[in-house]
Write a protein that binds this DNA or RNA. Sequence first.
DNA 1: GGAATCATGTGAT
DNA 2: ATCACATGATTCC
Length: 290
Amino acid sequence: MNIVATLEKDITPDGSEYETVRQVIELISADYRDQPSLEAIAAELSQSPTQLQKTFTRWAGLSPKGFLQAVTLDHAKRLLRQEAMPLLETSIEVGLSGPGRLHDLFVTHEAMSPGEWKARGQGLTIRYGFYPSPFGIALVMATERGLAGLAFADPGEEKACLDDMTCRWPNAAYVEDSAATADYAKRIFEPGQWSADRPLRVVLIGTDFQVRVWESLLKIPLGMAVTYSDIAHDIGQPTAMRAVGAAVGRNPISFVVPCHRALGKNGALTGYHWGLTRKRAMLGWESAQV
DNA sequence: GGAATCATGTGAT
DNA sequence: ATCACATGATTCC
């Protein structure tokens, strides 16, 4: 499949391509009403238009122009339009009968017991490592039970990013260990490694409410989106949409648990822990993967 | 239309 | 108790 080709080429040793992409996205989203031309954007970044076009297309599978259209309000509404609720409900059945096929990445999940959660990570050893990814530098965290955390950073922010994650489970022991995490990084960002017989194991560490929200997120297929209130309905608490927003924001395994597919009711990208630009990048990137 | 305002559940202090 | 929220609907100009 050409997704694989696209991604493999994208994973440059230093992951520098996202830096260019990030700047382009910031420019076009700053004033997308003006529909900035490719030439204007290239000039702003002091690159040649053809070079920029090539870089961007290789990353997104989509020209800057196409991407621009993909991140408008209109497009976001289109993602929501296809009846979100039935969508969530039908995928429940899938989830019950074995590993779910979740955004084309096969994931089995398990939640920590309430007792383990109260211990705030006590007795848990978490191994971590940094890796280049299509969305910037990725911090991968894992326990013996499976993938526990995935975060993103721009160059130079690695420390802040690590702090952000470690303070969620302050009593855990942290070990930098690329041997234990490299396989996860590879599996996540190389779709060729996604398969049903070797599902990605994921451990959800959070409160009962949070885990229910995250499980709901896992049911959203690639290329679609739901609103925060859709999720609230799905977990049986229709009035808790605001609480859902907070829980979505606390998702420790971004991208794998697709929190970027939660939008405001009007299609606006309301917020993202790792930066709205990255949320836009993920949605635009995914819109080309269908 | 857009700003101000309210109802609202969860989690941290 | 109280407060801050990645919400959403309503009510004012």
